[in-house]
Simulated assay, not measured.
Amino acid sequence: MFGLTPFERKSYDLFNAFHDFENDFFGENALQSFKTDIKDEGDKYVMEAELPGFDKDDIKLDISGNDLVLTAEHKAETEDKKDKYIRRERTYGSYQRSFDLTGIDTNNITAEYKNGILTLDLPKMQEVKPETKRLEIK
């Protein structure tokens, strides 16, 4: 019965007021991924992925079978620095998402990264209409 209610039972810690604040506010996996928009422009799809703070070299695009795997990685700073942080919120790690490429011409995909937005042009496969022939009767 409790699974049907829209509220969760949580235990709050008075000594840690911001315990799981990000997950409560943004949702479970909101901070572990990146946002994408995909538009249909007739002959192609255009995908825009928000990847702010990444260098172009930190982003990898791999095609495996019928899947496009987009990976972005923030590398951790070296521990040689003796900075005395009071608070550190920027995270380091990798983000990865997969997209289905069914119906996409994978040989002609183009990608551009500018101002924190990765733009992919995904051209649609041209429909191959079956060839019709007339057979001659002997």
Rank of each mutant, 00 (worst) to 15 (best):
Lys81Val: 02
Asn16Met: 11
Phe34Ile: 03
Asp100Tyr: 07
Lys60Phe: 12
Asp105Ser: 01
Leu70Thr: 06
Tyr12Ala: 13
Phe25Pro: 06
Met47Pro: 01
Asp100Thr: 01
Phe26His: 08
Leu4Trp: 10
Glu28Met: 00
Ile109Lys: 04
Asn66Ile: 05
Leu61His: 02
Glu48Tyr: 00
Glu77Gln: 15
Lys56His: 02
Leu51Pro: 01
Phe21Ser: 04
Thr36Phe: 00
Tyr92His: 13
Asp105Val: 05
Asn23Ala: 13
Glu41His: 10
Ser64Asp: 15
Glu50Asp: 15
Thr36Asn: 06
Thr36Arg: 09
Pro123Thr: 14
Lys10Asp: 03
Glu73Thr: 14
Asp80Ala: 12
Glu48Met: 12
Tyr92Gln: 14
Phe2Leu: 15
Asp121Leu: 12
Thr71Ile: 10
Gly116Ser: 04
Ile104Leu: 07
Thr106Val: 00
Asp55Met: 02
Glu50Phe: 12
Ile117Trp: 06
Ala30Val: 10
Gly42Arg: 04
Ile38Glu: 03
Thr5Asn: 15
Leu122Glu: 03
Ala72Cys: 08
Leu101Thr: 08
Thr119Pro: 13
Lys114Met: 02
Glu89Phe: 15
Leu14Phe: 14
Phe34Val: 04
Glu41Val: 10
Thr36Gln: 09
Arg9Glu: 05
Thr91Ser: 12
Ala72Phe: 08
Leu101Val: 01
Thr36His: 10
Gly42Ile: 01
Pro52Tyr: 08
Asp13Cys: 05
Phe26Glu: 07
Asp37Gly: 09
Asp37Phe: 13
Leu51Phe: 05
Lys81Gln: 03
Asp40Ile: 05
Glu112Lys: 09
Glu48Ser: 12
Glu89Met: 14
Thr102Pro: 04
Leu14Tyr: 15
Phe2Ser: 15
Gly103Trp: 11
Thr102Lys: 13
Pro52Asp: 08
Glu28Cys: 09
Asp58Gly: 08
Ser98Pro: 05
Asn107Pro: 03
Arg90Thr: 15
Asn23Gly: 12
Leu31Asp: 13
Arg90Ala: 15
Asp57Pro: 03
Gln32Trp: 00
Gln96Lys: 05
Phe25Cys: 04
Ala72Asp: 06
Asp58Cys: 08
Gly116Pro: 07
Ser33Leu: 14
Ala111Pro: 04
Leu31Ile: 09
Thr5Lys: 15
Met47Asn: 03
Arg87His: 15
Ala30Thr: 11
Lys75Ile: 12
Lys114Val: 02
Thr5Ala: 14
Tyr12Asp: 12
Thr91Lys: 13
Tyr95Arg: 13
Lys35Arg: 11
Leu61Val: 02
Gly53Arg: 05
Arg9Tyr: 08
Asn108Ala: 06
Arg88Tyr: 13
Tyr45Lys: 02
Gly103His: 11
Asp57Glu: 12
Leu31Gly: 03
